[in-house]
Design a protein around this nucleic acid. Sequence first.
DNA 1: CGTAACCTGACACCAGGCTGAAGAGATTTC
DNA 2: GAAATCTCTTCAGCCTGGTGTCAGGTTACG
Lengths: 218, 218
Amino acid sequence: MRVLLIEDDYVLGGAIRDHIAASGHGVDWMKRIDEAKLALANVAYELVLLDLNLPDGRGLDLLRELRAALNRVPVIITTAQDQIAVRIEGLNSGADDYLVKPFDLSEMSARVSAVARRYAGNPSPAISIGPVSIDLGRKIVIVGDKPATLTGREWAVLERLVRHRGAIVTKGEIEDSLYAFGAEIESNAVEVYISRLRKKLGRDFVSTARGLGYQVEA
Amino acid sequence: MRVLLIEDDYVLGGAIRDHIAASGHGVDWMKRIDEAKLALANVAYELVLLDLNLPDGRGLDLLRELRAALNRVPVIITTAQDQIAVRIEGLNSGADDYLVKPFDLSEMSARVSAVARRYAGNPSPAISIGPVSIDLGRKIVIVGDKPATLTGREWAVLERLVRHRGAIVTKGEIEDSLYAFGAEIESNAVEVYISRLRKKLGRDFVSTARGLGYQVEA
DNA sequence: CGTAACCTGACACCAGGCTGAAGAGATTTC
DNA sequence: GAAATCTCTTCAGCCTGGTGTCAGGTTACG
């Protein structure tokens, strides 16, 4: 899927871009409205992530222009917590969903996937890895033929690993999807969650790459 | 079954048409109201899917004209999230069901089939989950062998859970079906309604996935 | 064999979930 | 139009199980 990210904060923007890219989507990141307009005129995006805090305050205009031109590309807007009026106006102007800053990157991923799925009409596919079957959209895991129940954190780790399946995922990356942006942790929490996942999904589900990270087979 | 689809977005329209055709129904797709009127005057459709976002805003008129002419063909309307007033007016004008954009195409298929069944005089099938039997079409719930009476909000929560049965549904998603999209809520209302549902339908009807959401068995 | 990296059982703590109660509206009944 | 009933929303206090941490054991690698 091709995503257009319109966000002027380059730290947050980078994090969002990486997270979406990690989900296997292509991302173009524009920091200014005029750049974004140009891109939208020339590329067929399948999703737009639009920050309504842009300093020139013309994000809403962009959205309205899009809809006026009968462009129905799904748009998710992001606003600050207090900008309720802006958010409502955004929804009235044709946005499909919204996120309130600060948001968990995993929450953002979920919304992006949900909107994309709705628009494409594809049911979320189950991913099979050995005897484990995973439905990311429905948050369901089946081991052998029995469903496994995961906790929130366990799910976050699993999701990260599965989205990158085949690749080696570092502890730092897993930590990032566990503790959204900011809160640091001083313990071996990642190891603990890997251990818990192995207990629930089978010892061989995750393999350890010493000094590098973890990996699930492709 | 012969379906008339009235939708001006040609991407979405194509997707809907393909999906309905895949269910074995015949579809005629009109992008303008006047075309649709002509078609309705000349073809006996068994279902109409009507987009109320049409730029000329005359979808409602079409519906009213149909009903004024005593044409009882089942009509499902589609509206944007924020168009609550339009949706209500549509239902008051004689629509049989509605879908809020963006919607799951599979959900749309389900509604189309449901309407088709009702129209054909077949009873809508009850969904059985443990000792609970649910008829989404008629809004009837039976526990054991006694009917249960649910309030509006309770029903909204139940419907969301049952339509996605098997999947874990987040609180945010439930909230979206309880309140006008984008409305904020500052309480544990979702928890309260889950609690009420459990009291009426049995404690085990809904299971909690801590930190993730709720789930009814498939 | 020594060391660093990793694994995992145990445990205290507290965030998240549950539910009874109660007030404010809304709706119905008389 | 007042009373009675039903529904919605919020809140507070209780309770549970998820979470982070650590310690001691295990494994890989030079």
